[in-house]
């Protein structure tokens, strides 16, 4: 990972020097060492880092960056490249204003899992083989990388990029996939409606409506969100009790259905640890079952099954013989 970081810095410096790009969107240290946050850099790249904590998906920042003068260098991990393509499909990014480097990723770290192992006071992170070496104020700690990855990395979409002008990759690619991404969705499906309702009411009752999930989501990129638009009346339909917060997530899941690339950022940033990605995955699973497997963002310009019509389309609820469910 440290080697990749060095190569990225070197290549970015070249691109700045020859005038290909005028800025770079990457990561820098946030409030804490383990909290790497997206940032825009000039040619000096002051503070730029790339390590195991750089989980944030940078593609959404290109919406605004492609409106300003000059070309932006973006660093895309394999899963971020799907969001990048989806945004291109939706005409939200001007491709000519972006130079994309696909960079290596061998899974990103989950600070909560590291904390659970009793590691505190992290100052920096490095990787050695399949171990993560954490330099802390209490000395150096080693943990197995496979035990501290973000949940989404255990069901990675793959280490191949679907977009990028060039790529900076490790010689040995690490596969982190160990679980079926629909495992939990299947569990939820197996519940009775009452159990499921209780599960989601329980999870969503913790929501503080900080809007972090919406703000980080590359699919939630509306110029004006319906929840910020009192004229539409969507925001205050059920504001008499906490149910509205629940509806916020349901409506959001509907709005990104068929467009969500399953990048998992919603759950990663949720300060209340609500497994929001499960709502989206349920939609993805339903779409896969009804219309055939579909991965949003796999290609630029693809037509999602929910915005396309084919004569043999399933009609959920109406035609069980065509695969629709009653």
């Amino acid at each position: 990972m440290q080697e990749i970081f060095g190569r990225i810095k070197k290549r970015a410096a070249e691109l700045f020097a020859d005038g290909t790009v005028t800025r770079m969107v990457g990561w820098q240290k946030g409030e804490s060492d383990y909290d790497k946050t997206p940032a825009v850099f000039g040619p000096d790249m002051k503070g730029f880092v790339y390590d195991g904590f750089c989980g944030a998906n940078l593609s959404k920042y290109l919406i605004n960056l492609s409106k300003v003068e000059g070309r932006t260098l973006v660093l895309l991990k394999p899963c971020d490249s799907y969001s990048f393509n989806q945004l291109l499909t939706e005409h939200r990014i001007d491709r000519d204003k972006v130079y994309a480097i696909g960079i290596d990723c061998n899974g990103k770290l989950d600070i909560n899992k590291i904390r659970a192992l009793g590691v505190k006071g992290i100052r920096s992170v490095a990787e050695e083989g399949d171990e993560v070496v954490l330099d802390t104020v209490y000395g150096s700690k080693r943990v197995k990388r496979s035990e501290v990855l973000l949940d989404r990395c255990y069901c990675c979409k793959g280490k191949d990029h679907v977009a990028g002008d060039e790529f900076i990759l490790a010689e040995k690619r690490v596969d982190t996939t160990t679980t079926d991404r629909f495992e939990l969705v299947k569990k939820l499906e197996a519940m009775t409606p009452d159990e499921r309702y209780e599960f989601w009411r329980g999870e969503l009752s913790r929501c503080i409506r900080c809007n972090a999930c919406r703000n980080v989501c590359p699919a939630c990129s509306c110029v004006k969100c319906v929840f910020d638009n009192p004229a539409l009346g969507t925001d205050s339909k059920a504001n008499s009790d906490t149910f509205e917060e629940n509806m916020f997530h349901i409506i959001r899941a509907f709005h990104v259905a068929g467009r969500c690339t399953d990048c998992g950022e919603c759950s990663r940033v949720c300060p209340q640890h609500i497994p929001l990605h499960l709502l989206n995955r349920k939609f993805i699973r339903d779409i896969d079952e009804l219309y055939g497997e579909y991965q949003a963002g796999a290609e630029v310009g693809q037509r999602g099954p929910l915005t396309d019509f084919a004569k043999n389309d399933a009609e959920p609820g109406a035609t069980p013989d065509k695969g629709g469910k009653k």
Binding site: T89, E90, H91, R92, S221, C222, V223, K224, N229, R303, T307, D308
Partner: peptide
């Protein structure tokens, strides 16, 4: 227009080809 994202979703679902960008 103030709220339009320009995402082309409406163009794709329009059965009459009435929407352009």
């Amino acid at each position: 227009e103030e709220m339009c994202n320009g995402c082309s979703t409406c163009e794709k679902v329009c059965p009459y080809g009435a929407i352009t960008y």
